[in-house]
């Protein structure tokens, strides 16, 4: 065993690209990676610039004077951000749970080839992949029939199932849970619910984790549903808040300091810095967690690539 590995190693060492080519490739990738990261760094530097220095010199990579006033301001006006954070977390958690439940049950049912309505339900899942009602029709149905406007469900329900995830789920169940296991469980008297919750789900944790991640990131990054359905600022998610703040950061100013009128307070707030600081606040949780989740995203995609 060790010997074959050694052979393979020497083989691949022989079959390497030239050191010069390797060097050039490295330079190219360092350059690309830098392009991907620099904007975040730039926005961070703006967020810790003093408002004075922004006014004088515009946004700079290395500001003349540093200041934490933007973060202090946001901390002071934290109510709105905390509320938005609450909405974002609630939507992500509840949405992921509902989405997982709906996706996995459908995936399981479709994976049972002896099921009577299998063909019909497959069509139900498949047709939306190639044809859909579009933005207007969905908007009209959601607002006028389901009355989702200005409710938190408008952020959750429309996004919780995607046919793509259902197909991933079905393929996984089909290939990883043999019919014989299910048949023997049935002989032992287990109902389909029991088989689903006691056998199918525990055996498919990695796949469920992948779908949960897809859903959670989808919900966390969603601002479109908010911009369509939410007008009540109390129901803004973080992304929606950030979206609004781009147009008027003044809405954040609610608690003027002692001895200042509202107008003075608004005039003195760190407008530019505070906007960028909010962007940074949203990025941080993702930036800290995505390296750990990265591999699930890839595995999910390759599972889904199995022909439906």
């Amino acid at each position: 065993m060790a010997k074959t590995r050694e052979m393979e190693d020497s083989m691949s060492r022989l079959n390497r690209i030239k050191p010069q080519t390797n060097f050039i490739f490295n330079i190219i990738f360092i350059f690309c990676a830098a392009i991907c990261i620099i904007p975040v760094f730039f926005v961070f530097m703006i967020s810790i610039s003093s408002e004075e220095s922004i006014r004088m010199n515009g946004y700079q990579f290395i500001p003349e004077t540093f200041s934490l006033e933007s973060y202090q301001f946001l901390f002071k006006e934290g109510e709105m951000i905390l509320q938005a954070l609450g909405v974002s977390v609630f939507v992500a958690v509840v949405g992921t749970i509902i989405g997982l439940a709906l996706t996995s049950t459908m995936g399981y049912v479709l994976s049972r080839s002896s099921y009577k309505l299998n063909g019909f339900l497959s069509m139900v899942v498949f047709i939306p992949m190639i044809f859909n009602g579009g933005m207007i029709a969905s908007y009209v149905v959601n607002t006028q029939m389901l009355h989702l406007k200005d409710t938190v469900w408008a952020l959750i329900l429309p996004l919780c199932v995607s046919s793509f995830n259902v197909v991933i789920c079905r393929t996984f169940f089909k290939t990883n849970i043999p019919d014989s296991v299910i048949e023997s469980a049935q002989i032992d008297g287990a109902s389909q619910f029991k088989i689903f919750t006691r056998i199918a789900l525990p055996l498919s944790k990695p796949m469920l984790a992948t779908i949960a991640l897809f859903l959670t990131f989808g919900y966390w990054n969603d601002w479109f549903q908010s911009s369509l359905y939410i007008t009540n600022t109390k129901l803004f998610s973080l992304q929606a808040l950030l979206d609004h703040v781009q147009r008027n950061i003044e809405m954040m100013a609610k608690n003027p300091a002692m001895g200042l009128t509202m107008q003075q307070y608004i005039n003195n707030m760190p407008k530019e810095g505070a906007r960028m600081a909010m962007a940074i606040i949203i990025i941080i949780p993702i930036a800290c967690t995505y390296p750990f989740f990265q591999k699930y995203f890839i595995s999910g995609l390759t599972v889904g690539a199995v022909k439906g």
Partner: peptide, 11 residues
């Protein structure tokens, strides 16, 4: 699916 995919199609 009925509510969020097929009703809009009808719509």
């Amino acid at each position: 699916y009925l509510l969020f995919c097929f009703l809009p199609m009808f719509g």
